[in-house]
Design a protein around this nucleic acid. Structure first.
Length: 536
RNA sequence: GAGCCCAUAGCUCAGCGGUAGAGCAUCUGACUUUUAAUCAGAGGGCCGAUGGUUCGACCCCAUCUGGGCUCACCA
């Protein structure tokens, strides 16, 4: 039961699953710090978030993956860990996002920090605060452990001041790093410091004409052409995105950060700035981007691929976590068809985790150990999700009770929604899948004269059966009716049943279906079909 | 141009140092009072190419070829 207690540090140190590989890199970093005589009071993980858009499936992936490394680290070391979820809420709003209320209000506030713009939803202190709350709700929903940091609040608190002043003092070095990465035009006006205009409140991409290291100020050209002097500290200036990341690494002492491949080429810049700001760049891990079924990059504007909500509508959270766990450095296709596979793979990993012959060493390599942070649930899934999906579409089982009837009939061992809540959830996913994908493709047809008479006959016979639950007896009746009405071959009779009643060309054994669905209910269903109610 | 990823059965992929695997598809059989489902089994791979390391390589290293993606403006 308590697998966690049996795992030894030696086993964890030898484990090959990628979070352990990462944890060992991190441990080596910390050992080096100890050797250098520097204090080691904790290990800091960071994940970043841009709050001008809602959290999405990638946000989940990044935080989940970082959390797995964190947990792996905790099993090989007693050094305390922290994970910062950092929100870039001081960024100026560059364009009005789609699908938000009050676009004209947002347009009027373009350029201002997100935390200085009213909340278009009207529920929070600012737009930034609103989005931060959404992020936190998102992270809490999945039970992530984290410390939330607001960029605005951190700048204002002075926590970045020391690093900011160092960057001001070593301005030329910063420019030497940054300028080669910029276009010729941008080089003319570039400054790592973006002043927050005392006049307009906007975060300005302004040309800096003077620096005073002793006073800790810069003088820049305002939008109206005047010269303005502001401190670089205390939230009066924000750093450009790339230096911002490096400065933050230095100021907060970040030890570990992941990013998508789109950041890869920028990463050396972050590290260079971090060193200039007096820090030691963190261990970094690049993960690949997701592709759609055509192999194209998933982007919000294209609307290809699937969203987090899509996944969670048809598959479990655990299955999504498993997908994120597997091969982070391979560009994987993320589209609808991978969900059932991920769900069943999760079930398979769960089974093998609990199998008697599985060793603790093997358990450490099993994704479910990571996904559940060592506390792997005992639940069993004797029926696969693939079978459930087949069952629900083949059986027309569009309500839970009927579906559970089929599940019991198919399961090799006793199951119930109470004792198998996970399976019950899968049943819900299967039902939703049915509603969204199977039902719309159904095509009902009207019965011909022969079929009409037979169906009426069958309805009457079913009513006589009352609450008969033996599928065989009911099947005999169905067969009799077909014979009595001279269907040749007899399969035409069954075909008619499916096409008229279920709107599909194939279906479950009809007797079993009627027995589970209820003979009386089935009779009522036949009558409804005869009345043409399915043809609309 | 720079960098990253991928290349294994018809398809989608797993395997990452010790005699080639799964799912789907195909075929055969069993069961079935239609089909489907289910169960059992079969066929199908010079593991992209060439060198190297090794007693031994799909697995490690180098080079090459093909495909894909990311960054080259702004965050």
């Amino acid at each position: 039961m308590n697998q966690l207690a049996k795992i030894t540090r030696e086993q964890a140190l030898a484990a090959k699953a990628w979070p352990f590989e990462e944890a060992r890199r991190l441990l080596a970093r910390i050992e080096a710090r100890k050797k250098a005589g520097k204090p080691v009071d904790g290990v800091l993980f960071e994940t970043g978030y841009g709050p001008s858009g809602l959290p999405h499936i990638g946000t989940f992936g990044e935080v989940a993956r970082t959390s797995w490394v964190r947990h792996a680290f905790e099993t090989i070391s007693d050094i305390p860990t922290h994970l910062i979820a950092f929100s870039d809420d001081m960024d100026g709003l560059r364009k009005v996002p789609d699908n938000l209320p009050q676009p004209e209000m947002l347009a009027a506030n373009l350029g201002k920090p997100l935390t200085a713009i009213p909340d278009p939803f009207g529920t929070h202190e600012s737009f930034g605060h609103h989005m931060n709350a959404r992020l936190r709700a998102f992270l809490d929903r999945f039970g992530f452990r984290y410390d939330f940091y607001s960029s605005t609040a951190t700048y204002k608190s002075g926590r970045f001041d020391e690093a900011l002043l160092r960057i001001l003092a070593r301005y030329d070095e910063v420019m030497k790093v940054m300028l080669p990465t910029l276009g010729e035009e941008r080089q003319q006006t570039y400054s790592p410091f973006l002043p927050v205009s005392p006049k307009s409140g906007k975060v300005l991409l302004a040309k800096v004409v003077e620096r005073d290291v002793a006073k800790g100020t810069i003088t820049y050209v305002e939008e109206d052409g005047s010269h303005q002097t502001v401190p670089v500290t205390g939230g009066h200036c924000k750093l450009q995105w790339k230096p911002d990341m490096g400065m933050r690494w230095a100021a907060l002492g970040v030890d570990y950060e992941m990013y998508g491949k789109d950041h890869l080429s920028q990463a050396p810049l972050y590290s260079a700035i971090c060193k200039i700001a007096g820090g030691n760049p963190p261990e970094q891990y690049m993960y690949e981007m997701f592709l759609d079924d055509q192999g194209q990059k998933i982007s919000k504007s294209k609307g290809n691929g699937i969203s987090l909500d899509d996944w969670l509508a048809y598959g479990s959270q655990e299955s999504l976590a498993l997908f994120m766990f597997q091969k982070p450095r391979t560009a994987k296709k993320l589209y609808f068809d991978v969900i059932p596979k991920a769900v069943d793979e999760y079930i398979a990993f769960l089974e093998s985790y609990h199998a008697a012959e599985t060793t603790d060493e093997q358990r450490l390599e099993n994704p479910v150990w990571h996904i559940h942070a060592g506390q792997v649930p005992q639940e069993r899934y004797p029926v696969s999700f693939a079978l459930l999906l087949n069952l629900v579409s083949a059986s027309n089982a569009h309500n839970r009770d009927v579906l559970w009837g089929f599940i019991r009939a198919y399961s090799p061992e006793a199951v119930s929604p109470q004792s198998n809540p996970g399976l019950d959830k899968l049943a819900d996913f299967a039902l939703r899948y049915y509603e969204d994908f199977v039902r719309p493709s159904k095509v009902y047809r009207a019965p011909n004269e022969q079929e009409r008479a037979a169906l009426a006959d069958l309805a009457a016979r079913l009513e006589q059966l009352g609450d008969e639950r033996d599928g065989k007896i009911v099947q005999d009746v169905v067969y009799d009716v077909g014979k009595a009405h001279n269907f040749e071959p007899l399969r035409a009779w069954f075909g008619a049943l499916y096409e008229v009643l279920l709107g599909q060309s194939q279906g479950p054994r009809f007797g079993s279906f009627a027995a589970l669905f209820g003979c009386a209910q089935t009779a009522a269903m036949i009558k409804a079909a005869l009345n043409g109610e399915f043809l609309k």
